[in-house]
Simulated assay, not measured.
Amino acid sequence: MHLLLVEDDDSLRATLERSLGRVGMRVTPCADGALALPLWRSDPPDVVVLDLSLPHVDGLQVLQQARSAGLRTPVLLLTARGTVGDKVAGLNAGADDYLPKPFDLDELEARIRALHRRHQGPGADAPADLQVGALRYDRSSGAMYLGHAVFDLTQREIALLRALMARSGKAVTKEQLFEQVFPGELDVQYDAIEVVVYRLRKKLGPTGLSLVTLRGLGYLLKVDAA
Rank of each mutant, 00 (worst) to 15 (best):
L91A: 03
L5D: 00
R167P: 00
Y219L: 03
Q155L: 14
L63M: 06
L204D: 15
Y198V: 09
A166P: 09
R199S: 09
L16S: 04
L16V: 13
W40I: 05
K222C: 13
T15S: 03
L130I: 04
L161I: 11
A171Q: 04
V188S: 05
R201V: 06
A114M: 07
P127D: 08
D187V: 00
R162K: 05
W40H: 07
A69I: 05
S53K: 15
V196W: 03
I158K: 09
L3I: 15
A192I: 09
R22A: 15
V188D: 02
P206W: 12
V181H: 01
E107L: 12
Q61H: 07
T83L: 07
V48Y: 05
A124V: 02
S68Q: 15
P183R: 07
P38S: 13
F182P: 01
P44A: 15
G70A: 14
L39Q: 12
L204C: 05
R72K: 14
Y198P: 01
Q65N: 03
L77F: 06
N92I: 12
Q131F: 00
L153H: 00
L63W: 02
A114N: 01
P206H: 13
D51G: 04
L130T: 00
Q131S: 09
P74L: 11
G142M: 03
V195T: 15
L63F: 05
R215H: 15
A128H: 12
H2F: 03
V6E: 00
R117Y: 08
A36G: 00
V27P: 00
D58T: 06
Q131L: 14
D10T: 12
G205T: 14
G59M: 08
L3T: 03
V132N: 01
A143E: 15
M1I: 11
R72E: 10
R162E: 10
L209E: 08
S11H: 13
E185A: 15
E107A: 13
D58Y: 03
P127S: 05
L200R: 13
E157D: 11
G205V: 13
G133Q: 06
D106V: 09
E7R: 08
I158F: 03
R26A: 13
G205M: 11
V88T: 05
G169C: 00
Y198L: 10
L186Y: 12
Y98Q: 02
R139E: 08
V196L: 02
D129C: 03
V196Y: 05
V150W: 07
A225W: 04
F151G: 11
G205R: 15
V47L: 02
N92K: 12
M165N: 00
R13E: 08
G85V: 06
Q61G: 10
T15D: 10
F178M: 10
V172N: 04
Q61D: 14
E17R: 13
V27C: 01
G90F: 00
S168R: 11
A124T: 02
G218T: 11
S140P: 03
L3F: 06
A163H: 08
T79Y: 04
A110F: 08
E17I: 07
R201W: 04
S141H: 09
A89R: 04
G123F: 10
W40L: 13
Y137D: 04
V62D: 10
L153N: 05
A66F: 15
